Simulated assay, not measured.
Amino acid sequence: MIPLVLATIFFVGIHFVISGSRLRDTLVARLGESRFRAGFSLLSIFGLWWLAHAYRAAPYIETWGQLGWFKPAALLLMLPAFLFATLGTTPANPTAVGGAAPTAQTARGILRITRHPFLWGVALWAATHLIANGDAASLVLFGSLLLLAVGGTYAIDDKRLRMYGEDWEKYSLATSNLPFLAIIQKRNTLVPGEIGGWRPALALVLYLAMLHFHKGLFGVSPLF
Rank of each mutant, 00 (worst) to 15 (best):
L4N: 09
F10L: 11
H15Q: 11
F16M: 04
G20F: 01
R22K: 11
L23N: 02
D25F: 07
D25P: 00
T26V: 15
T26Y: 12
V28P: 11
A29E: 11
S34T: 13
R37H: 14
S41V: 00
L43A: 15
F46R: 00
L48F: 14
W49E: 02
W49M: 10
A57Y: 02
A58W: 11
Y60N: 08
T63N: 10
L67D: 03
M78A: 04
P80S: 06
F82N: 09
L83H: 03
L83K: 03
F84G: 03
L87W: 00
T90F: 10
T90I: 10
T95A: 14
G98E: 06
A100H: 13
A101R: 14
T103G: 13
T106F: 07
T106E: 13
A107P: 05
G109Y: 04
R112M: 05
R115C: 01
F118N: 02
L124F: 09
H129A: 04
I131W: 12
D135I: 04
A137H: 01
A137V: 01
S138M: 07
L139W: 15
L146G: 14
L148I: 00
G151S: 10
Y154K: 08
A155Q: 10
D158H: 12
R160E: 00
R162P: 08
M163Y: 02
M163G: 03
Y164F: 15
G165F: 06
G165W: 01
E166P: 02
W168S: 02
W168H: 02
Y171K: 07
S172Y: 01
T175R: 00
T175E: 01
N177T: 12
F180L: 13
K186Y: 06
I195T: 07
G197E: 00
W198Q: 09
R199W: 04
P200V: 03
L202F: 04
A203D: 06
Y207A: 04
L208V: 14
F213S: 08
L217M: 14
F218L: 14
F218E: 01
G219L: 12
